[in-house]
Amino acid sequence: MSLLLAAIIGMLFASALYMMMRRSFVKLTIGLILIGHSANLLIFTCAATRRDGSMERLPPGLIEEGQTRIEGEFADPLPFALILTAIVIAFAITAFTLVLVKRAYQEVGTDDLDNMRTTDR
């Protein structure tokens, strides 16, 4: 799984950056969404990977009723906490960018970023 995950993270980064380098504002937005997923998966690898580099389905960081700690292996909760907030922030950024695209298209009449450069008079 770790090898596959590494490959998929690389692939997601590649397509995200390719989209972000396009001159079309909508495509840039899609690139932003993709790079959010890539980054989240990157952080995720820290949570689920063992120290020897192997990866397994570990139980979540939940303490059983009546216990005071988790016995045995469990998935590192800190990366998941970071991912959780990152997801919500990425959502807000995506929504904001979509609105910006729509508004800019409405005002400027183009979605070509190269043509928008001259609009900040």
Binding site: A47, A48, L58, L84
Partner: peptide
């Protein structure tokens, strides 16, 4: 993927 690998909240 998150759900399978111990991250139900995420």
């Amino acid at each position: 993927v998150f759900a399978l690998y111990g991250g139900p909240d995420a």
